[in-house]
Design a protein around this nucleic acid. Structure first.
Lengths: 200, 200
DNA sequence: ATCCTTTATGTAAGTATCGACATATGGTAC
DNA sequence: GTACCATATGTCGATACTTACATAAAGGAT
């Protein structure tokens, strides 16, 4: 079983969905920590069905094409439950922006400062969106989101990870941009300031 | 050009290295935000050389096999400089542990609490290692690490990203584990506490 | 002598992922 | 009527990445 397979099972454990629905979910909330296009999802659903983890039934619709609605099986649910408490398989982290920061000493300061300012904004924006969603969740489902045995906890926990991640990322971008713009005190500058306290 | 190609150029911009050396670097500091095995690095070096971004010279050694030492060319350095200030190509984030948190409502509370405690420790450990390295860097190269035009800034910036990342990750794991163990106040519990302030 | 480890460089097979191609239904806009 | 959009399901080829296979020089351990 692949991780994508478990991701799909995780969604199907909450509700029966078509391949198309799953693709939409993967673009939304779940997509912030695991994403996949439909070209990955449809074949994976076939594999899951071949393995007896899901079943499907064709549902006819009037306004639009028919769809295949997938349900998780008992076997699928058991596999999912076991997988959840197993330690995650280590993945190599890959962050292109950190790589760029690693080479920033070679580049034009103005251009690189602009780059990190833009990224700071991007992550700040995402953080704001996440915070808004969190408020909505806490208001609308305040009781359930904090109970780890409720399916509402799922999205709430993922959201909290997103908030911490984006906050940290924006903070780091700000630090890099500030450093490039020379707005931060170096240890030497700090020493100098101690000598003459109020230098405009 | 691939991102791995730029990662290699970024390392070669600091010093000439063999494929083997590059592989070691990718396991170490750089490996914390971009990693690759030697089976990826050797072919990539060939491509870089074919594209005129690097050149190599064979260096004979007495105690061990000969090696090919790669140097970045002017063309390679130019390509790298341009790449640094371009916005990063968006990559889909993939975090298996968040996915597991998303399914935690299905699982055995004791087992899942243990999982998130273990992960909390792992990230806390990594954080401690990073902090130690930061102190060493600040002590040994205090002047250079804060100057964005110095090659020392490279590793320092990456390190700071690592510190923020691990701190946030550990914090989140702790929150999840606490939630499962019921150690956190729910909104309801908070309300109740307001009523009878000093309840053991 | 044989085995293990480090250094050193490569190839090959398999999987995961991405982007593009392909098709079909039915609605709306022009 | 035709062009476009949302729904809906699939395949294919290219690339990125991992794991295993393969070789070789030199040193140390048993």
């Amino acid at each position: 079983m692949t991780t994508l397979g478990y991701a799909i099972l995780g969604l199907l454990a909450q509700e029966a969905l078509s391949g198309y629905d799953l693709t939409q979910r993967m673009k939304g909330r779940v997509g912030n920590f695991w994403s996949a296009g439909h070209s990955q999802i449809y074949p994976e659903l076939s594999r899951l069905e071949a393995g007896g983890h899901v079943t499907h039934s064709v549902v006819a619709q009037q306004d639009r094409p028919d769809k295949k609605v997938y349900e998780i099986t008992t076997r699928g649910l058991e596999a999912l439950k076991e997988w959840v408490t197993e330690p995650p398989t280590p993945r190599a982290p890959r962050d292109e922006l950190v790589l760029k920061a690693y080479c920033v000493w070679l580049a034009d300061p103005e251009k690189s400062a602009r780059l990190f300012r833009e990224e700071e904004l991007r992550h700040e924006d995402q953080l704001a969106r996440y915070k808004k969603t969190r408020k909505w969740m806490e208001g609308e489902h305040g009781e359930e989101v904090v109970r780890p045995d409720s399916p509402w906890f799922a999205g709430y926990a993922a959201l909290r990870r997103g908030i911490i991640y984006e906050r940290g990322y924006a903070e780091w971008c700000r630090w890099v941009a500030d450093s490039i713009e020379g707005k931060l005190d170096s240890p030497t500058k700090r020493e100098k300031k101690k000598g003459k306290k109020k230098s405009a």
